[in-house]
């Protein structure tokens, strides 16, 4: 490596801009950051994958002239004696022979692990699948940790229908059947009884409501991004119908994910089952299981409150019957209303 003491670009600072505070310190900071990241990088899994791949390549000795030109052809390239005369034929025959052996080995299943998609590729495929216009229905089971003590009671079972980042939930609260969900604008809606409903704008959502939507929504785009970014993924023994992936957090993510078990349908790449453990230190911990029960063409109207109410039905909002809305929320979900909806007065 050629270390350039001049630090490229440093002398080009334009007079039109404010002077850089301290370019050398900035470079040092970035270097220190990269050094720290490298020092803590856990490369064991990568080493194992590479060892398998390189071993397979050593056995097959496959030449790969079609490999994309990741490195330029003009640098560091010694003249190869293998490009002349008979050695070229020997190489071609060897390649053909070994290729046949590799193909045979492949057919026998010996190299299955190297041709299957990686866990990360499977999760990205699942993300693409769930971005389509198909809604999926999951049975959701919630198991909460005994400590810290739950601040409010949650139904342990619910039925959640998901379409992208929209969802609707059906759950029982005692004798009452609740339907609620989140629409495309992020507004949470709830249907109280025939002809009545309420809405809570994203800016009004209290901490309890944010937690509730976090638990029951299955926003796979965000969730799987979090898993991909913060978890180490391992394949488990798969069945003929699903790929099983186990994810364990290696660093704290935004969703408090500790671990996850994910089953991806081999054919459709939809998430068939998801068990996710979350932990918010000093706040709550829980395990939530999503089990796919149905897939169908989405009825988009069902993801907003209008789809659940007759025409001209009144909907309680911040600007219409706000006090009544707060009372209903407190009665339904328990505890003070501020847990569920934060009004403008409380924000001030």
């Amino acid at each position: 490596m050629n270390v350039n003491p001049e630090q490229p670009g440093r002398s080009k600072a334009s007079g039109q801009h404010a002077p850089l505070p301290d370019v050398l310190s900035l470079d040092d900071l970035v270097k220190q950051h990269l050094d720290a990241q490298a020092a803590s990088a856990d490369v064991r899994r990568l080493q194992e994958r590479l060892a398998d791949s390189l071993a397979a390549d050593t056995v097959s000795h496959l030449a790969s002239p079609e490999v994309p030109a990741l490195v330029p052809a003009d640098s560091n390239r010694p003249v190869s004696s293998k490009s002349h005369g008979s050695s070229r034929w020997i190489r071609a025959i060897t390649t053909l022979t070994v290729s046949a052996l590799v193909l045979a080995a492949f057919l026998l299943g010996r190299f299955e692990s190297t041709v299957e998609a990686s866990p990360a590729e499977l999760l990205r495929a699942a993300q693409e699948t769930h971005a389509g216009p198909i809604e999926r229905v999951y049975l959701v089971k919630v198991e909460r940790a005994a400590f810290p003590a739950p601040s409010f009671a949650l139904p342990t079972e619910a039925r959640v229908t998901v379409l992208g980042d929209r969802f609707r939930v059906e759950m029982n609260r005692g004798e009452r059947r609740m339907q609620w969900g989140r629409d495309a604008s992020g507004t949470v809606w709830m249907v109280t009884h025939f002809g009545r409903g309420l809405q809570i704008a994203p800016s009004e959502a209290g901490p309890g409501l944010e937690q509730l939507t976090d638990i029951y929504s299955l926003n796979l785009e965000t969730l799987l991004d979090d898993v991909l970014a913060h978890c180490r993924l391992e394949r488990e023994d798969s069945s003929p119908s699903v790929h099983r992936i186990v994810a364990k957090a290696v660093r704290p993510g935004r969703g408090g994910i500790v671990a996850a078990e994910i089953e991806v349908d081999r054919e459709t790449k939809a998430i068939r089952k998801l068990v996710i453990e979350r932990n918010r230190p000093q706040r709550w911990g829980m395990k939530v299981t999503f089990l796919l029960t149905d897939s169908q063409v989405a009825d988009e109207s069902q993801y907003s409150i209008e789809g659940h109410l007759p025409k001209n039905a009144s909907v309680m909002t911040r600007d219409f019957q706000n006090d009544r809305r707060r009372e209903i929320l407190a009665a339904w979900l328990g505890g003070p209303a501020d847990r569920w909806v934060v009004n403008d007065d409380a924000k001030r």
């Binding site: 590479l50 991909l228 290696v250």
Partner: peptide, 10 residues
């Protein structure tokens, strides 16, 4: 993204 990075380095 850790998983993508591993794939890419591999």
């Amino acid at each position: 993204d850790l998983s993508t990075a591993e794939d890419l380095v591999h």
